[in-house]
Design a protein around this nucleic acid. Structure first.
Lengths: 184, 184
DNA sequence: GAATATACGGGACGGCCGTCCCGGTTGTCC
DNA sequence: GGACAACCGGGACGGCCGTCCCGTATATTC
């Protein structure tokens, strides 16, 4: 282990992370790193010291969000009916994607290895999600042959619909369609 | 109008188009134009003279394929039950996407304006597809509130599933799920 | 408050890629 | 078969972007 970061370095790191989170969410992964540095009011060197590559910066941002989502998934799994929990989390992910272009890009596989980030030991989103699915299937609420990749693909579809034309009606309709398809 | 192309120019154009079609289908839109020129055995200048931009090259490739797909859609619409025709065409598109990474990229909106190309007057894929949808809805085979954007999004989802791990079982499952969701 | 390590800024670098241009070549037409 | 226009090849150019480096500034420690 190394000694703790200097105070200003900590501030800068946090600042970069926050700006990056907002920027990636609003504009997707195509934003240049220079731009994030500029908006954070630091030099590009500062960014690249804390996060050697763009991918590592995005991974750090994503991991933050992931933690919350996994926690939510856990809570949903704990209380209430398994089927409801599964579909509620699915809807939550759609909402998240709608507000977070970065996640959509990652899910769409636009250059980043989402799988690798999602599979990180301490932030096992896919695992948590899969558990929700399995519970719902055991409870007979979701067709037994569906796997987590199917679910992820359906999520991608819902997010694509959002991207074409964000519209509350359309979102509800897509959730209904997917729901009908997935239920036993 | 200009005079007809010189014989060698026609040959080169056709050659580039053919190589581009195969290459885009196999590797997606990220292939450099230089690489297509190299494989076609021509200089980059030759490519860029016939197709001023990469987008125009891809559009030309896509339009070829589109024509066939639209024709197929028309045939499906003409004979047989409307619901069957709609779902058959959907399955056909999934198959097409599975064999054609370029189309997947275009559908996923990876930098190219698929809509613009698809809406070309003489190759109105979306229109043809929408007609299939409307017929199926009129016949009561597909839920009435779904629109063509929903269908396109669901297709994107199916194609995403293919990309994660191509698998005949998974494809059939996805089609079943989407079918269940879309039927009345 | 001085000494030292640590971090900052932002310019430089290199790779990638699409586009353009020019000297040479090859069809075409009389 | 000769002259001219059309076309070819591929190198040059410019923009973009991620990464690295170094002279400078600042926090930390004693």
């Amino acid at each position: 282990m190394s000694r703790p970061l200097r105070a200003d370095a900590q501030r800068n790191r946090a600042q970069v992370l926050q700006v990056a989170a907002r920027t990636f969410a609003e504009e997707g992964l195509s934003v240049p790193v220079h731009e994030i540095a500029r908006r954070a009011g630091v030099g590009t060197g500062t960014v690249s010291r804390h996060f050697p590559t763009k991918e590592s910066l995005f991974a750090a941002v994503l991991l933050d969000r992931m933690e919350q989502l996994v926690r939510t998934a856990g809570e949903l799994a704990d209380d209430g009916e398994p089927g409801e929990a599964f579909f509620a989390f699915f809807a939550l992910m759609v909402e998240e994607g709608s507000a977070n272009k970065g996640i959509v890009d990652a899910l769409a596989g636009a250059g980043f290895d989402f799988q690798a980030v999602a599979d990180d030991d301490s932030h096992d989103v896919m695992g948590a999600w899969e558990k929700l699915l399995r519970c719902a299937q055991d409870a007979g609420a979701v067709r037994a042959d569906a796997d987590i990749s199917d679910v992820k693909a359906l999520l991608t579809g819902c997010l694509d619909r959002e991207r074409q034309a964000p519209d509350p009606d359309a979102r509800a309709r897509m959730l209904a369609i997917v729901g009908e398809g997935l239920r036993t």
